[in-house]
């Protein structure tokens, strides 16, 4: 066991875990931030996506020891009231079916929009590699364009 100081959703946390514990399980089991989902454990499906600084990372394959001082944002910390433009767009486009992958999808979309505020369909294809087993890709694409229209502050 080792102690780690983590900056998550603008708060400081100290956890005492094995250094090789993936950030995913620290979030879910130690900090009860269960919005970040487990889907494959091998960085394939993206259900565990969180933001590290402004980049989308797959927390199932990121050992807690590698997080350091980087700022982590999970779905719970994306906005105070669930009204981040991407969250709003997801609701307006009525994207979710089962909903399980959507926190990861949303964070991937946020990272994309930070990099490219007006993404093309090709940009979306390249950046959005998360799996949605229900097949809501059409509405995910629509929601990303919608969020881009809402402009600026993502």
């Amino acid at each position: 066991m080792a102690s780690f100081n983590l900056q998550i959703n603008n708060r400081q946390y100290t956890v005492d875990v094995e250094p090789d514990t993936p950030l995913l399980w620290v979030l879910r089991d130690e900090l009860n931030l269960v919005g970040t989902k487990y889907g494959c454990g091998i960085a394939q499906c993206g259900a565990c996506t969180v933001l590290m600084n402004d980049n989308a990372v797959r927390s199932c394959s990121l050992p807690v020891s590698a997080v350091g001082n980087n700022k982590i944002t999970t779905i719970e910390g994306l906005s105070e009231n669930g009204d981040h433009p991407v969250q709003q767009a997801w609701d307006e486009a009525d994207v979710p079916q089962c909903g399980y992958c959507q926190s990861g999808q949303i964070l991937s979309a946020v990272a994309l929009l930070k990099r490219k505020p007006q993404p093309t369909d090709e940009d979306i294809n390249a950046a959005m590699t998360n799996i949605c087993r229900c097949g809501t890709y059409i509405r995910i694409r629509k929601a990303i364009h919608l969020a881009a229209q809402k402009g600026g502050k993502v």
């Binding site: 919005g35 999970t74 997801w90 009525d94 979710p96 399980y100």
Partner: peptide, 19 residues
């Protein structure tokens, strides 16, 4: 057209699922 009643809980990462 009615939106999924759990949208808000889903997009804010609430504990909805068995896991």
């Amino acid at each position: 057209r009615v939106r999924n009643v759990d949208n808000k809980a889903i997009i804010t990462g609430k504990p909805l699922f068995g896991i």
